[in-house]
Structure formats: structure tokens, C-alpha cells
């Protein structure tokens, strides 16, 4: 079962990388680029489980390792 975990800095946590990329986009002429944020995408394949179980397992993985809940939020997708 394919699972995708997206980890982003929480709203309100300073994202200097996103800011720098935003500046670079403006330099390139993309003047309508607003609120650029940088995160991580972690894709994995979970063996022998239902979509529901996969979601639950990915949730445990995110809480324990993939995200640092002090500064990051996570979202889980199990593509059908």
C-alpha cells in the first residue's frame, strides 16, 4: 500500500527557506508568488495492510519520527 506523508513547518513557525525561495521567485519575475513554504514529502510502501491500517501506521511513524510535532505538522495520503 503506497503512503505519502507530507511534513510542513507549523503555521507561525519562521520558514527562512520558504522566504528565500519566495524572494528568488520574485527576482525571476513571478511577482504573484505569495507565502512560499518548504516541506518534505516521504513516500513509502507498506506491505500486507488495508488502506485504513496503512493510514494508522503512517500516523504512528509521523508522530514518532517523520515529524517533530514541536515545529511541524504532517498530512497523510493513501492514494486509492
Amino acid at each position: 500500500m503506497k503512503v505519502r506523508v507530507t511534513v510542513m513547518l507549523k503555521d507561525g513557525v519562521l520558514d527562512p527557506q520558504g522566504k528565500a525561495i519566495g524572494h528568488a521567485l520574485h527576482t525571476l519575475g513571478f511577482n504573484n508568488a505569495q507565502d512560499v513554504r518548504v516541506g518534505k514529502v516521504i513516500e513509502l510502501d507498506l506491505q500486507d495492510c488495508t488502506a485504513e491500517e496503512a493510514r494508522k501506521t503512517a500516523e504512528d511513524m509521523a508522530k514518532n519520527l517523520l515529524a517533530n510535532l514541536v515545529i511541524e505538522d504532517y498530512a497523510i495520503e493513501v492514494p486509492a
Binding site: L14, P16, Q17, N68, V70, I71
Partner: peptide, 17 residues
């Protein structure tokens, strides 16, 4: 120590990158 929960808080990228 912060990642293992032995101390509170977290360390982000330096403000000026």
C-alpha cells in the same frame, strides 16, 4: 536532546539561513 524529548523545544534553521 530536544529530538529525544529529554529537553523541551526545538532548533530551527538559523534565521538568516
Amino acid at each position: 536532546l530536544t529530538e529525544s524529548g529529554l529537553l523541551p523545544g526545538a532548533l530551527l534553521r538559523n534565521a538568516d539561513l
